[in-house]
Write a protein that binds this DNA or RNA. Sequence first.
RNA 1: GGGCGAUUGGCUCAGUCGGUUAGAGCGCGCGGUUCACAUCCGCGAGGUCACUGGUUCGAAUCCAGUAUCGCCCACCA
Length: 906
Amino acid sequence: MDLPKAYTPRDVEGAIYERWLEADVFAPDGAGSRADPTAQPFVIIQPPPNVTGSLHIGHAQRSAVEDLMVRHARMRRRPALFLPGLDHASIAAQFVLDRILAGEGESRQSLGRERYLERMRRFVAETRPTMLAQQRRVGASLDWGRLRFTMDDVSAKAVREAFTRLYADGLAYRSEALVNWCPGCRTSVSDLEVVATPETGRLWTIRYHLIDDATGAPDPAAWIAVATTRPETILGDTAVAVHPDDDRYRALVGRRVRIPFVERDVPIIADPVVERAFGTGAVKITPAHDQDDFETGKRHDLASIDIFDDVARINERGAPFTGLDRYEARARIVDLLEAAGDLESSKPHEMVIGRCQRSNDVIEPRIKTQWFVRTKPLADAALAATRSGRTRILPDRFDKVWEHWLTGIRDWNVSRQLWWGHRIPAWYCPDGHVTVSALEAGPDACATCGRPAGALTQDPNIFDTWFSSGLWPFSTLGWPDDTDDLRRFYPGTVMETGYDIIFFWVARMMMLGLQLTGEAPFSTVYLSGLIRLPGGEKMSKTKGNAVDPLEAIDETGADALRFALIHGATPGIDQKFSRERLENARNFGNKLWNAARYVLGARPASIAAGAARVAPDPTVLGPAERWLRSRVALTVGAVDRAMADFAFAEVTRLLYEAIWNEFCDQGLELAKVRLTASGHTDAEREATWWTLVEALDTYLRLLHPVMPFVTEAIWDAIPHGADDPGLLIVADWPVAGARDLGAEAEVEAILDLIRGIRNARAEAHIEPAEWLPVDLVVPETLGPTLIALGPAIERLARARPVRRHLTREALHAATRSASGLAVIAGEAEAVVGRGGAGASDEAAAAERARLEKELVSARALLASTRARLENTEFTAKAPPAVVEGAIGRAAELADQVARLEARLGR
RNA sequence: GGGCGAUUGGCUCAGUCGGUUAGAGCGCGCGGUUCACAUCCGCGAGGUCACUGGUUCGAAUCCAGUAUCGCCCACCA
C-alpha cells in the first residue's frame, strides 16, 4: 500500500474518525473492542462542557490529555470508558440566553417561566451538536452511545434521589441565612462564585446622635461617630458596636442612638469583634447586609432589616429612599448627612468588594430562606479519602490547597432563584411543612400533616448547576439504579480537569460521591494547567480573547494541535499557546509521514508487495539494525515510565527525539546503505527492511495516543502481523525488547566519527558535495562494526575512499605529507583530505584554529576532572561508579589532549 | 493578611534520585537541487540556571532568606 506523497491532515482525519466509528472501537464493549473483560477497567472522567458553549483551547487540551490516557489504556486491552457529556450550566446558559433575548427586545421576565424554559430548550437543541462535533474533530475517542446530559431524565432522577437522601440524613436543610445575592442575575450564588475584587472605595465617618434618656429625643450635641464604606446600609442598622475594653466608649454601652432617616433608636452594644484601631472604633451593625454584622446580630439578638429588593433598589423599609438604586441612595444619604452636619469625614479607602463571577455586579449580602448542604461531614470524608491515599491529587502540591479549602468550608447554598436547571424536589403545605420527595410526580401528601398533593406547592428554586455536576461520575452510569455500568465502571480511574474548578467540581464530586455511594468517585485527580495567551493572560470566553482550536485544526490538523498541547502539558502548570509549537508539531507529523513513505518505498524486490509482517532474521542483522532495535527498546521503556508517571509532555519529547533524531536522521540513513549498496544478500536487505518496519510500527503504536490520526493512516499502509487487528487504535501497546548495549556503543562511536568528519569539513568550508579521501583508525574492538558501516561513513561523510589503518602510527605515517583535516572522535581518529595536494594558507590556519579550540576545551575538562580526582574527599565519598567514570574520562581526555598536541606539532 | 507557583541562551520551554561537558524547538549565522521530507538536510554561535547565604566531596536540582511576575484563599466596617 502507498501513502499519498503529500501529508494533508484534513484529508486524513475525517475519514479515519469515520472508520473508528464504523468499527465500533470506542465503547469498551463495542463490536471492535479487543478489551480483556477480566482486566481492570480504565475510566476517565472529563468535565462535561457547557452545552451552550463552543470548544476553546482549554477544552482541546483536556480532551487531548484525556484521550491520550484512554487510548493508551485501550491499547493495553483494558476495558476503557470515555463517556461524553454536556452540562446544562444553569446560570451560564441563562446568562447567554438572556443576552440573546435582550437583543430581541425580550427578557426572562417578559417571557415568564414556562415560555423561557421552552425557549431555552430550543436554544440548547441548537447549540448541542456544536460542542459534540468539535470534540470529535479533536479526535476524542468518546463512547458516543453513552452520551449524557446533566438535564436528561437519568440525571434528573439522580438529582432528586441525591437530594432526598441528603435531606433524610440531615445533610440538606432549609434555613434563613445570609446569602450572596447578585442583583444582575437576580439569584443567590455560592461563595465560590463571588470574586473578591480590590477596589478603591470611600470611608465615611458619620455621627449617630445619642438619645437623651430623659426626653427620649436625640441629643444634637452628643453623638457617637461610626465609620462605614456603605452609608446606604444605615437604613438597615439595628445597633452600634464598640469593643468592650474600649475606654473611650465604655460609658456609652447600653445607651441608644437615633438612626437618621428611618428614625429608629438602636442600642450601643459591646462586642469583641470590633477592631478598636479601625475608623472611630465604633461600628454600625447591619445584620441583613454584612456577614460580620449578621453574626454579631445573632449574638445580640438584633433585628435584621433587609432594605433592598431583588435588583438592589431600596425597598419600603428604607422609607424616604424607596425605589432608589443602592448607589443613588448612597449619594443622597451622604449629601443629606453632610447638610445636617453629621458627616465628619470622607476619605478614599482601599477595600475588597465581592463581585459576581458571572455578571460582575457587586454582590449584595441578603437574608434569604434557602436550601443548604451541610458540608462539614462531607468535607471530612473527602479529606479522609485524600489523606489515606485512596484518591491521589496530581500534582501533589494541590493537596495543601485541597486541605485548606475543605477544612474551612462553609455550608453550600444550593438553591438558585433561576429557572434553567433541576427544580428542588421540596414541597410546602399551607402550614409550612416541608416534604422532600424523589418521586418524579412529587409526593402524594404532606409528610407531616397528610394534606393531599393538591394542597402542596413545589419550591420554585432550582439547584446550583454544580449539584448535578457533582453527581456526574455515578449519575452517568445509571445511579441510583444498580446498573451493570455502575457496577463495572464505578468508581472511575482518573478524573481530569483544570485546576481552576478543583473546588467547584472536584471537591463536590468527592463529597457527594463518598456520601451517596460510599466510595471516592475516582482514584486519581489529574489537574491540568490552564492555557494562556502568548502574553500570559488567561483566556476568557467573556473577554472574547480565546484562541479558536478549530482554526488551528483547519490549518495544521488535530494531530499537530494535540501534540503541541500535550507537549506543554505539565500538571498544574499553565502553558502559553504558541503558534511556533503548533508548526513544529505539524512538521513532526510531516516528518513521520515522509519517513513512512520512504520505508514503504524501500521494500526490497525480494519481498512481495502484500507480504505479511515477519520479524527480522536475527542471524543477518548488522550493527545498525541491532542498534536501532535496541534504541527502540529503550524508547518503549522510557515511554512506559513516563506514561505511568502521567508525564505526558515527556512522552512527546521522547518520541519526537526518537523518531526524528534516531530513526530518521540516523536509522534511515544507515539503513539506506544496506538497502541500496551492492554486496548485500537478499536476506540482509530483507532483515534491514523488516527492522525498519518493526521500528516504525512500534513508534506508531507509541505515538498513537498523542497523534491518533496520522499514526492510524500510516499504520494502515504498513505490513501487519497475523495477530494485528485492522486498526491501530485497538492494536496492542508495545512491549520493550532487550537492549543491545554493545551495538549501541559501537554504532554511536561510528556516528561520532561521522559527526567529527562533517564538522571538520564544514569548518573548513569544504563543498558538501565534494568527495574526499579519509584515512582512519579505530580501536580493535570496533573493527567489525567499521567494516559493516564503512559504506555508511562514505555516504554520510562524503568520504571516498575510506582507508583503514591498524595503528595510529600507521595512520600518521600515511598522512604525514597530506594537508588533511584531523578528526579526533573518542578513541577513533581520522584524517580527511587529499594527500599531498597541499592546502591554502588560510585553510591551514582555519584547521589549526579548529584544533586549538578543541585542545583548549579538552585541556580545561581534563584539568577539572583531574582536580576532582585529586580531591580525596571526592574519591572517598562519591559512589564508586562516579569515581570510576571520572577516572575513565580523565584517561580519555588525556589521550585526546595528547593527540591534539601531537597533531599541532607540540 | 495567609498560601502556592514561576524565574534556565533573543523567544517558548525540558531538566527524573544532587554526579562528567545544562538539553530541545523557534529564531540567528554559515553551507546545501544527496533519488522520504525545503513542513527538509549538514555545521555552528549563543546560558554567571533571578539574587544572597547555607548544607555537601559535588547544587539548576536540597535548605534559609531576598527580589520580580503571576495565581489561589481570606468576614476589619
